[in-house]
Write a protein that binds this DNA or RNA. Structure first.
Lengths: 121, 121
DNA sequence: ATGACGTTTCTATATTCGTTGAAGTATGGA
DNA sequence: TCCATACTTCAACGAATATAGAAACGTCAT
């Protein structure tokens, strides 16, 4: 992972609403969660939520797919693990007791989703 | 860890210079590094560096101690691990394959230091 | 005491960020 | 087709952030 990507991910998570959104998605697992459910759980206006989802998505931390009228957002666990690895890289000059470990490897893969691929406008 | 602390830590790391500073300290290990060395390695103005160190320190991510004319900064590995735990909490509804692990436990404890204790002004 | 060095504090400024309100765009049902 | 639902886009505003220059502070050697 490059510094610039790590900063993007950290910036995306460095905001209370977004952090809660992301943690909600992490807890939801690879299946994800509808935007509306998140809005209800956190009491956020829909446009505000879109703003935050966009930042998370742009940082590569979440994916989206449409399901009927709902948008289903899901955490990208790979990105989360990469971020942790980046932070702890070469910890303590590579001392054995500091070898970092991947933190989360869910079994079920998420549905094919939009992620950062098809950028609009 | 509370959300507010996690946001503070993430905000502190969500800036390229600070992220590099912190990674440098993580790689240096519990012994830490003089501010001057960091300034030289990253090519930052001394006042700018102080500004960033303050943010890291305020977020509980680093400690300082004085050594002669130099200030020695060191990463707080406990805070780093707490942050990772917080992010991955209840990952995938507690599925076994997602149980988070502590990422870095250096042996040598850092010197007693200033940390966030004695706030000036 | 004097001066050099390493670091911090103060002040100012341009930029970025989070939230809101209003309007717009897909999707599904009657 | 018409309407409700579920989100997204746009425009605007106050608040917070990163950096720079100048000055001050604490420590050490002489």
């Amino acid at each position: 992972m490059e510094t610039i990507n790590a900063v993007a991910a950290l910036s995306a998570l460095a905001q209370d609403n977004r952090l809660e959104i992301f943690r909600l998605l992490v807890q939801a697992g690879p299946g994800g969660m509808a935007a509306g459910q998140v809005a209800e759980k956190l009491g956020l206006a829909p446009n505000t939520l879109t703003f935050h989802f966009d930042r998370l998505r742009f940082a590569g931390l979440v994916t989206v797919r449409r399901d009927g009228r709902s948008m289903i957002y899901a955490a990208r666990f790979e990105a989360m693990n990469d971020l942790v690895s980046f932070l702890t890289e070469n910890c303590c000059q590579g001392a054995q007791e500091c070898a970092p470990v991947a933190v989360c490897k869910p079994k079920g893969a998420p549905h094919e989703a939009v992620s950062r691929a098809r950028r609009r406008r």
